[in-house]
Design a protein around this nucleic acid. Structure first.
Lengths: 337, 337
DNA sequence: TTTCCAAATGGAAACGTTTTATATCGCATG
DNA sequence: CATGCGATATAAAACGTTTCCATTTGGAAA
């Protein structure tokens, strides 16, 4: 029997009550006599009734669905984040509509509007940078928006991040403390807020605090991929004043860096030391295993979603701008102290 | 101005027409005089009207949303698949509700019912094995379901896959042709249909066709992860009759295998040859680069979604059980011929 | 002109719930 | 034996669209 198209009205008739009563039973409203409740529940089971969430959404103005805008779900980084979001969402009975933006302003805006049209109860946004017109749209949004692994750039938006500046500082400092007077910085495009403002700033501050000058050409920008890390390091190796310590903006780039070094006949960590960023699963899938900044992607996603549920339930919120702790996981791409 | 809560009725009044006409304009119905269309469009722009997809879904019984059930989105494999699905979905104006099942029967069934309750127009399912009660639910589904990278096990369900048996055959044969009379097979649990029935069968058939016996202990089962591949190979290396050729069930396992070999002081491909499976991005992130069976995850997702749209549009379908081509990408973990 | 027909528009029902205001029931209380 | 009051239950009005049917409109043909 197709459990389809049996409505609350059918159940009501079958159970000999009104649809309002069925609605109460379905929604766990306490004002129902136990015997009635049982009668209704039996009818529901007998008919295989499944509430229509669309009708429910229209009547109640709540869809128990949240939108998730992500640059690219096939990126391990965002996939992990998404998993954190989804797990907490499930916990709170929400479902997730997922959309990829490719960090394109147009797609972001379009996606946002589609999601709002679908009446999601809230949105979690990830992106490299908040374009101005996107923020405009955010302001007009009738539902709350939470940023995950995305800086709010001073706008009054709830966000969950780590302290990227400090993390980069720590990583760079760790390398400096190992006796290097030059530290290479191989990372992604500077337009990306986190990368261009935070990591870069942390890197420079660490140099500065150590009394070291910043050399323009010790920094090479790629696109976060393995190939671009490899290529950047190859380029750097051609210089005779090549830094012997490298801080890479992502683990994937770090793998490329290590391979470039090894391909050139050098050893990590004996000749070169390398620190990565993110602590993706990749970090242990290389020899030597990668020392890396731990950015808890799953947790960021989970916390962002939890924050969203708090806003939706009008729970008290201590801090809208959450900064999760980071640390550096020491593995073999760094020499023992 | 909050573009919220302005309804089709407001637009109708503003434009001096009926809501039916507004509806026609919004839906691109041709039976509207150009001047009227313009008038309505202006009113829409002026008011910032955004159609309510929930109300639309209730009235039209179409939500332009499809459900996607995936074991674990944080797995690079499924993330890639999901991206393929989403891209094609976007192309056809669908959105995606994504849910993780962790391959748990209960979660799969629960997720399915939630999605059906949300009135999705169709579902794409990925999972290691089709449990019987899940198939029961599938049969009752009022909307079409397409399997992606999941065998239909003889049930009459549309599915998109590659020929896993033949792929495993090809990989094993390639190793045999390199002069090995034993080939190790390190893979995941046999309960998983694709793994336990197809890959395993292909492996055995290749041995058989080459007149080689199947040694029970040349096969080690793990859980697809890097760590389990590493561990399995370490175990195998302890045997004095250890196979010098390894076919790994996934790239991630293959990386573990290669590292185990290297850790033991041997060389790939000189001492050992290794072939992986999937051709994830990992395959090139190792030295030597991994020779691997190409399973086009993105394409499987894309084709599965396209197939679903065909079913939804009642387009003609040549073949419901799609088998995409596979091949072996030769890289350095195999010696030159 | 009138007649007719297609094109354009409008009216109202339907979609399946939630929710509010209202009614009824059962029962202790005075 | 009425009275009143929670506790339950009902009826009906939203919710914002689509869609079916009916009606009007504007020309072209007669």
């Amino acid at each position: 029997m197709n459990s389809n198209n049996v409505t609350i009205y059918d159940v009501a008739r079958e159970a000999g009550v009104s649809m309002a009563t069925v609605s109460r039973v379905v929604n766990g409203n306490p004002n129902v006599k136990p015997t009635t409740r049982k009668k209704v529940q039996d009818a529901i089971d007998r008919l295989g009734y499944r509430p229509n969430a669309v009708a429910r959404g229209l009547a109640s103005k709540k869809t128990t669905t949240v939108g998730v805008i992500v640059p690219d779900i096939s990126n391990i980084f965002f996939a992990d984040l998404a998993r954190g979001i989804e797990d907490v969402a499930t916990m709170y009975k929400y479902n997730i509509i997922l959309g990829n933006s490719d960090s394109s302003r147009d797609k972001e805006v379009h996606l946002l509007n589609t999601l709002l049209g679908k009446q999601v109860d809230g949105i979690i946004f990830m992106g490299g940078r908040l374009h101005e017109d996107l923020v405009e749209e955010f302001k007009k949004s009738p539902v709350p928006i939470v940023l995950a692994a995305t800086l709010n750039q001073g706008y009054d938006l709830p966000a969950v991040n780590i302290d990227y500046e400090q993390a980069a500082y720590d990583a760079t400092q760790m390398l400096i403390n190992h006796g290097h007077d030059r530290v290479g910085f191989i990372t992604g495009p500077l337009e990306q807020q986190i990368n261009g403002e935070k990591k870069f700033a942390g890197y420079r501050r660490a140099l500065e605090d150590a009394g070291l000058p910043f050399h323009e050409n010790d920094m090479i920008l790629g696109n976060y991929t393995y190939a671009s890390g490899l290529e950047a390091m190859q380029k750097m190796l051609q210089r005779d004043d090549c830094p012997k310590a490298i801080f890479a903006g992502t683990d994937e780039m770090a793998l490329g860096v290590i391979h470039a070094i090894q391909d050139a006949g050098y050893s990590v960590p004996n000749d070169f030391e390398v620190v990565g960023h993110d602590n993706t699963r990749l970090a242990t899938m290389i020899r030597p295993k990668l020392t890396t900044v731990v950015q808890p992607m799953y947790d960021i996603g989970a916390v962002a979603m939890r924050l969203l549920t708090k806003i939706l339930n009008a729970e008290e919120i201590e801090e809208k701008n959450v900064v999760l702790p980071h640390r550096i996981e020491r593995r073999d791409s760094l020499r023992q102290d």
